[in-house]
Design a protein around this nucleic acid. Structure first.
Length: 927
RNA sequence: GGGCCCAUAGCUCAGCCCCGGUCAGAGCGCGCGCCUGAUAAGCGCGAGGUCGAAGGUUCAACUCCUUCUGGGCCCA
């Protein structure tokens, strides 16, 4: 007779094969259709707010794996905090203005660019941004990221622009904004100033030249006088900046020497660099004639190498002994440090290069020539004048524009700046960094602190079309730019209604209050200026434009969460804007993650061809596997991604999924009304629940500490442990008992708790699968994402109980090894064919174990287990030394139903192939 | 070149930080085997690490210090 049908085998529709690429989008549609995100919010209305402010990604293409990582981490937290009972409204944002989009728009225009007005270009940019916002929004939602996707925040939204501009107005009102002539990074292709964040360094071959600066007045200096004539020698890799030279800078504390080199020439150079410089410049073996400190040479004059000017010998702490001669060519129009040091000497910058990188009439010999092309000519000119000591080539890192991918130049221009020293802003920022913000990991503090401490004033203006105009006016009377609060206010009024296009569209008069006069000259003739704000201001202002504007949000936010590059980027700009405009930081805590690396630990880049697309991953493995990977990695350091890693994560996913499936299958005929009371649970059920309680406790802590990789390892290991130790052991009860048998219901009760807790513990990480499980377990009612996060404590066990079970686990290993031995000797196959004898060599231990013989039999999944006394072994300490396991073939016969071996088989005449228990169950089923 | 960070089995992580001292642990993968009532599953056993390298402190270092190497982010 076939007794299989009398068994309670698992039954579930929950498929083993996840088929996530197909099933996730279906579930997503249902979530969207039923406004799940809104319902989650509704459920927590009135609860304490928890605000995670989304750093807006730049909307200019498909999302990449870094986006997926960042948004997954945010979503995990948002879901976790919601389940913990907080009111968490997640408003995703998009950064819409800026050069990358403008560039794309211009590319599409081709040669017609020149015919287009700023308004037309802006309209195109708007279209591009809108297109990519839609694209990215869909991709993020596909990832399972919940939130206000119907109403994301856009930095191009007129309301958002108006609020950002109001913050700008407050900063202007605070007196922080000034117009200055300063060297800035300049992209000659796009003809705009660049922020530090818009620069990347690339390998670049530059000329490496040594140039003589003949000293004009050596007789004024005691050290030089006896050795005249003397040349200061400078080293530079940018010959084109030589027309802008106004000084030669020495370090006050370095030792400089007068040395005689090849041809009897006498030069000045830093002592430490003399040898290397003479070797490099092929000047032979130098002979030192005199020595002095840099400060002794201050104030001497050299002749300018190219113009009828003089170059002053000055001192600066920034001079180093790394390369060159220790005498630094200084062109205040072409370098920030040069500018600063010259300022101390009252030297005004000389800047003969126009916005396209061509020389102007200020350097007539090369007017109209591109600086890069000018290099060679200048070298020729120097040679002709006998000033070139040596020319070579050098390959080094040189700043490139992140958009034009061409080398940039540094040129002094008129720009709007945010003054870091005004009202002690820098100091206030530094104090806020140390005292008011929690940095996670903690080293982020030192990182951003050093950056803020060292950064120059923030260059706020750009000469572009796609951004928020700075409503400054050129006052004809004063002959300069003015930024008037009244004008800004008027501008904002229009922006609110019409967007920032109004600056281009409306006549100047619209922005001028009645009787407006230039505060400097009293004049009334103005022209609009068309610089725009650095996009970093747009995003740096979102604490005001977004958080302050929505009563469901708040500023400061509880958390900003971005990659560690944002210490220089968004965290930085947000901090400065908020400190200047509001006097407080925009966030309470800042969490950073590392960067993606490939399997070799190298950065991912298109050029290396090692990029992995999140869209491909979702298409082939599903969002949950991708998210499980995110959770599995300790994101505080670098994050690895490779084929093998995703294969490993997929394995883990399958293990978790199968555990859910097994639980569901065995709970098919169970509901809460059939749950066993605590007193009815077997000891092993209580053990399993105690382990579950531990898991809940530890996972909760891990979430609280943002250590999602611990959540992953903890839950995955729990599934593994339970599969092997608990779920395997209780199969006999589950399958073979009568369906309503109390011990079976007890096991199901434990499994139900396990299922419920596990699904909720994992819901933030694998939202699709957890929800699928929840639906399979409880029907199509509430989503798991509306449930509360499990709380520990309900089934906590005392130490003695846990220790008792640790010993059982150790015994299980001992027995398992012996069973394996018996298997190898072909004595047994399945463990139920075995009978175990535990020979215990310690009387005390024997007394304890003897009482648990039947429990051990179950744990070992064998047909019988005897605990016997053995001659005591001296000095036996480990369990292994105290207990010896013997394996024999079990007595009796195999029950055809439960496969246990017992002498009872055959006692029931009706069911001669069954053991007593099974015969009994079958008879009752038949009744 | 500067600031900050990372470096433990093939892979992902524990342990290390603020208290140095059991044969450095887990899971996955891998090898071998069992089961065929979780079956494109489940169970068991096993093999994998001179804890990036070199010095130093110490009776004793994966754990503390220094230097170096490789890698990352941000700058120059």
């Amino acid at each position: 007779m076939d007794y299989r049908s009398t068994l309670n085998l698992p039954a579930t529709n929950f498929p083993m094969k996840a088929n996530l690429p197909v099933r996730e989008p279906e579930r997503l549609k249902r979530w969207q259709g039923t406004s799940l995100s809104d319902r989650i919010l509704e459920k927590r209305r009135g609860a304490p707010k928890w605000v995670l402010h989304d750093g807006p990604p730049y909307a200019n293409g498909d999302i990449h794996l870094g986006h997926a990582l960042n948004k997954s981490l945010k979503d995990i937290l948002v879901r976790y905090k919601s389940m913990k009972g907080f009111y968490v409204k997640y408003v995703p944002g998009f950064d819409c203005h800026g050069l990358p989009i403008e560039q794309k728009a211009l590319e599409s225009l081709g040669a017609k660019v020149k015919e287009k007005s700023p308004l037309e270009i802006r309209r195109l940019c708007h279209q591009f941004a809108t297109k990519y916002i839609g694209l990215q929004s869909g991709q993020f939602q596909r990832l399972g990221v919940g939130g206000q996707w119907k109403t994301p925040y856009l930095t191009l939204d007129p309301k958002v622009e108006a609020r950002a501009l109001r913050l700008f107005r407050d900063i202007v009102a605070g007196g922080y904004v000034y117009k200055g002539f300063r060297p800035v990074y300049w992209d000659p292709i796009f003809q705009t100033a660049l922020a530090e964040a818009e620069i990347e360094y690339e390998e670049h071959v530059s000329p490496s030249i040594y140039v003589r600066f003949p000293c004009l007045d050596p007789e004024k200096n005691e050290v030089l006088r006896p050795h005249a004539p003397i040349n200061f020698v400078i080293w530079t890799t940018t010959p084109w900046t030589l027309p802008g030279n106004l000084a030669v800078c020495l370090h006050p504390d370095f030792t400089y020497v007068v040395a005689e080199v090849a041809g009897g020439e006498r030069v000045v150079a830093a002592e430490e660099l003399l040898q290397s410089f003479c070797t490099d410049a092929k000047l032979g073996e130098p002979k030192v004639l005199a020595k002095c400190k840099g400060r002794d040479l201050e104030g001497l004059h050299c002749s300018h190498p190219l113009l009828e000017k003089q170059s002053l010998v000055i001192l600066g702490e920034h001079v180093t002994l790394e390369q060159g001669t220790g005498c630094v060519h200084t062109a205040p129009g072409h370098g920030a440090e040069d500018f600063d040091v010259c300022k101390k000497y009252g030297i005004e910058p000389f800047q003969p290069v126009d916005e396209a990188g061509r020389f102007t009439e200020l350097y007539p010999p090369m007017q109209g020539v591109q600086v890069w092309e000018a290099n060679q000519t200048i070298i020729g000119e120097l040679t002709a004048r006998g000033l070139l000591a040596h020319v070579g080539k050098i390959t080094h890192q040189y700043p490139y524009s992140w958009r034009s991918h061409r080398p940039i130049i540094v040129r002094a221009t008129e720009q709007w700046f945010l003054a870091l020293e005004h009202k002690g802003l820098r100091q206030k920022c530094l104090e806020a960094i140390q005292n008011s913000v929690q940095w996670i990991p903690k080293w982020g503090e030192a990182r951003i602190y050093n950056m803020v401490a060292a950064r120059p004033d923030w260059c706020l203006s750009r000469q572009r079309a796609w951004g928020m105009p700075i409503p400054s006016l050129h006052s004809k009377g004063a002959g300069k730019s003015i930024l008037a609060l009244e004008v800004i206010d008027r501008f904002i009024e229009y922006v609110e209604k019409e967007g920032t296009d109004c600056w281009y569209r409306r006549p100047l008069e619209d922005f001028l209050p009645e009787g407006f006069q230039c505060p400097e000259s009293g004049g009334t003739e103005f022209e609009k200026e068309y610089d725009i704000l650095d996009v970093w201001f747009d995003s740096g202002a979102t604490h005001a434009s977004i958080l302050e504007a929505d009563p469901d949000l708040a500023s400061p936010a509880d958390l900003y969460l971005e990659g560690s590059d944002q210490h220089r980027g968004w965290f930085h700009s947000s901090l400065l804007a908020s400190m200047a405009g509001r006097g407080r930081p925009p966030y309470r805590a800042v969490l950073t993650h590392g960067f993606l690396l490939d399997e070799k630990g190298e950065a991912m880049s298109k050029s290396k061809g090692n990029v992995i697309s999140p869209l491909d991953l979702m298409k082939h493995m599903g969002a949950d596997v991708l998210r499980l990977w995110v959770a599995s990695e300790d994101y505080r350091g670098d994050i690895r991604a490779s084929k093998e890693i995703f294969e490993r994560v997929s394995e883990a996913y399958r293990r978790i999924r199968n555990t859910f499936r097994f639980l569901l299958g065995n709970l098919a005929d169970f509901d809460e009304t059939r749950a066993a009371a605590d007193g009815e649970l077997d000891e092993i059920d209580r053990w399993a629940l105690a382990r579950l309680d531990q898991l809940v406790e530890r996972v909760g802590q891990a979430y609280e500490q943002y250590e999602f990789h611990r959540v992953y390892h903890l839950t995955h290991s729990f599934c593994v442990e339970m599969s092997a130790a608990y779920l395997d052991v209780i199969k006999d009860r589950l399958y073979c008992s009568a369906p309503a048998d109390r011990t079976r219901r007890a096991a199901q009760t434990a499994m139900r708790e396990m299922l419920s807790a596990l699904a909720r513990l994992l819901a933030p990480i694998i939202p699709f699968t957890a929800d699928e499980v929840w639906e399979a377990a409880y029907g199509g009612g509430e989503s798991v994402h509306l449930a509360d996060f499990p709380a520990p404590g309900g089934r906590a066990a005392d130490e003695a109980f846990l220790q008792r079970w640790e010993r059982f686990a150790a015994l299980r290993e001992i027995v398992a090894r012996k069973l394996e031995e018996a298997r190898r000797e072909k004595k047994i196959g399945a463990s139920l064919e075995a009978a175990v004898a535990l020979r215990v060599k310690t009387p005390a231990l024997y007394e304890v174990l003897a009482l648990d013989a039947d429990l051990l039999r179950q744990l070992f999944i064998v047909s019988s287990c005897k605990v016997e006394r053995a001659p005591s072994a001296a000095g036996a300490e480990t369990l292994e030394e105290q207990v010896e396991a013997e394996i024999r073939l079990a007595d009796g016969a195999k029950c055809e139903r439960c496969w246990n071996w017992t002498k009872e088989v055959g006692q029931n005449a009706e069911h001669p192939a069954l053991c007593v228990r099974c015969a009994d169950v079958v008879e009752r089923l038949n009744r």
